[in-house]
Design a protein around this nucleic acid. Structure first.
Lengths: 215, 215
DNA sequence: CCTACCGATCGGTAGG
DNA sequence: CCTACCGATCGGTAGG
């Protein structure tokens, strides 16, 4: 019998689980910045110090890697939002805490994620990530608005208000929007600290743009 | 001398300027939905009923076509926003008019455009489109907020307000955000008419989420 | 405006 | 985890 060469597999010592973590954190950074299509598997591998086929020992394919990245990230986001929610406080403080968390963690780029879900991913992966996003991001934030409606702080739809989910998507889009404000010669929001930006967004959501007098 | 075969060029009758318009409107639709990278030149050509190399008789390359699409579109947006501005009226009415125009024309996807500018285009095209966006979209909207600050309706930065440009990016992101709210079994904002959605966003920008009582 | 084609790059596989 | 390689697709060109 000929000698069978050593082929690493997930049961060997040299099948390094550390490598999987490196691939995950590297591809997370790249996918979040550039999106699914613009990040090639070779680019991920190179950034990890691997050859491209090596990725396929840890993930079945590119979409599977993208899914794993978002499963991990959305779980983390859920934990952060739950921590904010447990602090309680008034509506504006809760909103400010949510915004601060989203800004500080440089979390999901909602728009880039939606673009990938709509155009780049197969149905099963799309549904999987879409459900995780609704469960782990939208639901916890919407609960804050729903609570304010129950306490008659905000109006419900029948009274001329908007739904908790619509309020949540509005909040998420405002967080994304502040990232695009170009830096100015004079000090501007983009140069503010995360805390100040979060308070400012929360203030606008609850009371609108700062006015001279309540009209 | 051998017979020189007929090669169409821009001076011939069969070099159809109508074709250029078809390419522009077709690629506009595709670029707006899928972004620069995801739209191949072959896909554009096929949608126009042409072969892919035929595109290069009308545009030097893919980026040049992308540029022409946005030059045309941003000019149209400028005209629409100027028309809204000329109507005058109170701040909330102006904002509502802007939002209504942006929603009705299914204009620029700001986030997709920013992604392309940041990651997909050469510096010269990026700067060109970036300048056009600031001149034709940001500036007209920011002027509305600047006017409200001059009239002491909104606070300026020193008084705790935000800059006209920051307010503009916030408005643009809110418009984008409403497009992502999933349709619900119960009637929701996504099912509202453009007019109602525009009024709702304007109300939130000026007065915040609808509350039971001014606190 | 077409056919034919170029080099580069893509996601993924074979096989060890 | 590597080398070697596959078919598909990309933007763009040659030449008529």
């Amino acid at each position: 019998m000929t000698q069978i060469p050593k082929i690493p597999n997930r049961h060997d010592k040299d099948f390094n689980d550390e490598t999987r973590k490196i691939i995950l954190q590297t591809s997370r950074r790249l996918f979040l910045e550039f999106g699914f299509r613009a990040v090639s598997t070779r680019r991920i591998a190179e950034a990890c110090g691997l050859t491209q086929p090596a990725l396929y020992h840890h993930f079945a394919n590119k979409q599977d890697l993208y899914l794993a990245v978002h499963q991990e990230m959305l779980t983390e986001t859920r934990q952060g939002l739950d921590r904010v929610a447990r602090r309680g406080g008034h509506l504006k403080d809760s909103i400010s805490g949510v915004v601060r968390y989203l800004l500080a963690t440089q979390g999901e780029d909602t728009n880039l994620l939606f673009h990938d879900l709509a155009h780049e991913l197969d149905m099963d992966v799309r549904d999987n990530i879409g459900n995780l996003f609704r469960e782990n991001v939208v639901a916890p934030i919407a609960a804050i608005f729903a609570r304010a409606i129950d306490q008659h702080i905000l109006l419900n739809i029948d009274e001329g208000g908007i739904s908790p989910m619509a309020a949540t998507y509005l909040l998420l889009s405002m967080v994304q929007g502040m990232a695009h404000v170009p830096s100015q010669p004079e000090p501007d929001m983009a140069l503010y600290s995360v805390d100040k930006t979060a308070d400012s967004i929360a203030e606008i959501i609850v009371n609108g743009l700062p006015r001279s007098r309540p009209s």
